[in-house]
Design a protein around this nucleic acid. Sequence first.
DNA 1: AACTTGCGCGCAATCGATTACATAAATAAT
DNA 2: ATTATTTATGTAATCGATTGCGCGCAAGTT
Lengths: 345, 345
Amino acid sequence: MLRAEKVERKAVTVQDVARVAGVSTATVSRALSDPKKVSEKTRKAVTEAISATGYRLNKAARNLRKRQANAVLILVPNLGNPFFSQILHGISAGFSDTEFSILVSDTSDQAGNALNLVDYFLDSRIDGLISLDGSLPNAELDLFHQHGVADKIVFACEWSPEANFPSVRSNNAMGARLAVRHLFDLGHRKIAHVTGPEGNVLTRARREGMLEERQRLDLPMNPDWIVRGDFSLESGFDAAQKIARMKDRPTAVFCASDMVAFGLISGLKQQGLSVPEDISVVGFDDIEMAEYSDPPLTTINQDREGLGRASADRLLAQLRPDVGEDRQIIKLDVYLAERQSTRAI
Amino acid sequence: MLRAEKVERKAVTVQDVARVAGVSTATVSRALSDPKKVSEKTRKAVTEAISATGYRLNKAARNLRKRQANAVLILVPNLGNPFFSQILHGISAGFSDTEFSILVSDTSDQAGNALNLVDYFLDSRIDGLISLDGSLPNAELDLFHQHGVADKIVFACEWSPEANFPSVRSNNAMGARLAVRHLFDLGHRKIAHVTGPEGNVLTRARREGMLEERQRLDLPMNPDWIVRGDFSLESGFDAAQKIARMKDRPTAVFCASDMVAFGLISGLKQQGLSVPEDISVVGFDDIEMAEYSDPPLTTINQDREGLGRASADRLLAQLRPDVGEDRQIIKLDVYLAERQSTRAI
DNA sequence: AACTTGCGCGCAATCGATTACATAAATAAT
DNA sequence: ATTATTTATGTAATCGATTGCGCGCAAGTT
């Protein structure tokens, strides 16, 4: 029984409520936004008038008057990527019982046309911004400062190395070090690395963590063992060809992402090598599939939802003076999830 | 050089532009919203005044006056699920050069508290809604009709079987039939099916498509061969236990999703059965991993991004009287991606 | 008793753009 | 040449809620 009469009542306003309650619009407004400013009695009268009239506050009007949008924008490099969408899930949860709605924009869509993020602020469509994209153009970031909204921005997962915005991230270097350490403990000495895309901050952090641990353990180094990837399945697959054909072939590979690891394993198999018998593989991210792949993937676990929540909290702290912590950089712990894609040599 | 002076200029308004251009605010507004209503000369004057003053139109003010929000809400059952987020990607692309922003809400967040979607309309926060969630409570759907916004709603991927909203979906029944047919052609006769969650429309459509094709081919039927799942990896894994232990064991399994298929393969392996040697497996969705898993998964491809785009277009058609097609149900084609998880018996 | 303090509330301005209506000028029609 | 029509613009009301200012009254001070 889904049909129903369309009731076209012409918007109930504060005026109507005020009239019914026998008070002024000012009082109605106050009763709503700050109940303790009106007396017990009037508050009750207003409440009753509201339910009698079926009043709903018009957000557009409020936004105009209060000069705020009650919305935040989340900037995602690619919504199709499950990794990002899980962070988004956390962000969504983090804002779920606040007054803020979340607007989502995919930076890959506006590829060509500059995105002019600051306009979102200037048009008073948003009050804050969380970017999962660490590679926003500097010109854009400058604009934020110029228009005085720089303090309404938080980075999550990725970050902008040159600028100094609050940032919530995983401890990437630590993750890389755990991975190398794990392989070392299994007896591996010749360890390769498939990186993320050049220029990406995560790529750099993980690569450096790996190099650092390697140095610490005094492992042999062969520049060929660092293979360029881009976090994708394809790039892992391609890397497998190169690695399989190396004269001085590594016995283990640390991949910058789980997707790369899966691609790599698939590629190695095609080259007649099997994991972990011939080569051990460690991933990064611990996506859900890692547990069910063949072989189950040893990898570094990141708390994606935690990243989302923490960044939501962090932005909230900027948006409302009183709440939340305000560290500039929040690093979330990672851990090694040991499965069957690695084995002792 | 990211520091810059914070310029705290107090919002340039139409008033200012009007003064500088030597015209009235009405003219400025017209020059902006409908340029052909003003003369060449004034249009130019206004344009210049705008860039001279650095004017930006305040959306909140416009929204209030025009009684529209220039935003649409996308309802996602679970943002963490890559499948949905890829549809979202398509939707985002579909709206990317329109005047609409997209608000995203995760229905799993508000689990307990009723979500009161109609309030989004009543508060004039949105002009339209795309739901990827086919199981919105009927009470909610009734409200849409009662408040006259029922024609601003489009379902994508999933749909609400009892209600009659526009819907964009894959041809699920066809997909199921292709899967069964493929297995039949390979010589399989004993074909099992791991379903989605009970009550879900996709579960039903796929199950029925399968039964239909089965009937057509006059395949034997054993009720045990229909195993309840829920689209998840775990449920596939669990189903494997049951299937492996059947006395009359099927030689092939059609899974309601790729995730189920991966879980199943992992579970079968644990039971000492291998795919496709002992059992052939077909999935549904064709997620990116399908091509790189071991074995690469034979599956039914759905155009997720297409679903998103088409639903965006469909909603746009409702939002602006003139544009776009207005069929009630748009079914997108699917196809079989044949890989190595199936083989002739 | 006279005086400060503070609470509760109303009046009216305000946020910034859009648009119905009116007016004036320019063009077309007769 | 006169009227009808069109085009370009201005005036001012409007969308609906918030809030600075001020008034009246009750409670607290001395």
